[in-house]
Design a protein around this nucleic acid. Structure first.
Lengths: 223, 223
DNA sequence: TTATAATATGATAATTATATCATAATTCAG
DNA sequence: CTGAATTATGATATAATTATCATATTATAA
């Protein structure tokens, strides 16, 4: 269950949103002003902040700055003023999305889930079949069991993950990992690495399902 | 320079957007229909797709599905119909943002940059003094020169980077890297790793400036 | 200052990573 | 089907990593 901090001072909106978001399975706490919001963020832990731009005791931009400087909490601005200045300022301060009032409840849910998805996966944890790569920890695991990848195997896996769906030529892979292509490393080196990586990540290394061979072109993993 | 694929069939919008986005430093290509869009995505490489919902040869949802199933390209929908159904459908198909026409050009730019940031296309690079860690590539470098960190050294460095400013106790560090604290690894193992990491990343390993010893508590790096 | 705990270092053996070789299996064109 | 190109595999030598030992150094409290 995701915990949302709603920074808003309009009683009607607060009541409506708490009711609606609770029904959708979120846990919601309300802060009515800047100080209360910043205190709550420091004291409790949340997964996302819904932040009204216009608060009784000042604008929400300051709150966003404060939150983003001390945490990496995702922030979605809510605002009646759909003026361009606010939008641009909001994003510049590190906001993750921006919804203009009046918004449709279902769109709010979609955007909340979308921001949670984007902030949760970008550069952190990636799934590749049953293989999970955590770039924050620098580890890879398969069905929860740690795969003790070597430095080069890990980097090779990252190249595939960051180019999912695209065929990677041998040259590109060599360039990605050894910096230079062909000249300094043996032609077979890459082939051997592919084999060893497959032995660690594939269920059946002889019939690879993750790293597919594209004969004549290179290798690819599906998105 | 980021490469954008604009899937749109309205000549006026195409011309305006290409001119505006080019001025902002993006490289833009246009596909007028579904087939052209999917072909272009397969043939060339882009960093982001701007996708109109209503195309002459069908709706953009199919294009989004096709793109998302074979690549991990970020997609932003553009649409005149601000109806709720489309918004929700778009996000369900994996879209990363959604902008209703008529949109303000500056907001479009903000949202494009925001999506690029969130999806990680912008890279995930952290600086620690003159040491740079690229978690997308899985590499670390010092003044541009590659540091050939071993798997464990790299993971140890990541722990410090992700806890900048905080003192990390020996127990926490052991838990982070060996999963278990004290029981299975020798008490001195961590000390030896700190030393070896310092030898690779510090200018003067005897007088460490990056990983500081906090006697009696553990180690820390400054934020 | 001295004793003691905490941290650092140097050396070690076992293991694993790395690059390359030789050879085998496979795809696909002709 | 046959042969050449491509990819896969097994084996090997060298180098690096890893965990631990013994020992040295340092900081701080008494």
């Amino acid at each position: 269950m995701y915990r949302i901090l709603l920074v808003e001072d309009d009683k009607e909106i607060i009541d409506n949103l708490i009711e609606f978001l609770s029904k959708e399975g979120f846990s919601v706490k309300n802060a009515k002003g800047q100080t209360a919001a910043i205190e709550l963020v420091e004291k409790e832990s949340f997964d996302l902040v819904l932040l009204d731009v216009s608060l009784a005791d000042g604008n929400g931009f300051a709150v966003c700055s404060a939150i983003k400087s001390s945490t990496c909490l995702p922030v979605i601005f809510l605002t009646a003023s759909g003026d361009e200045f606010s939008t641009v300022t909001g994003f510049d301060l590190g906001a993750d999305d921006y919804i203009a009032k009046p918004f449709r409840p279902r769109e709010l849910i979609s955007r909340i889930k979308n921001v949670l998805r984007l902030t949760g996966t970008a550069g952190n944890i990636t799934q590749l079949g049953d293989v999970t790569v955590d770039t924050v920890k620098g580890t890879a695991s398969k069905n929860g069991k740690d795969l003790f990848l070597s430095a080069l195997e890990y980097r090779l896996l990252l190249v595939f993950i960051n180019n999912r769906g695209a065929v990677m030529t041998r040259t590109k892979l060599l360039e990605s990992i050894w910096d230079i292509a062909g000249d300094f490393v043996n032609d077979n080196t890459l082939t051997v690495y592919i084999k060893r990586l497959r032995e660690k990540i594939e269920d059946d290394p002889q019939n690879p399902e993750i790293i597919k061979t594209v004969r004549g072109l290179g290798y690819k993993v599906d998105a």
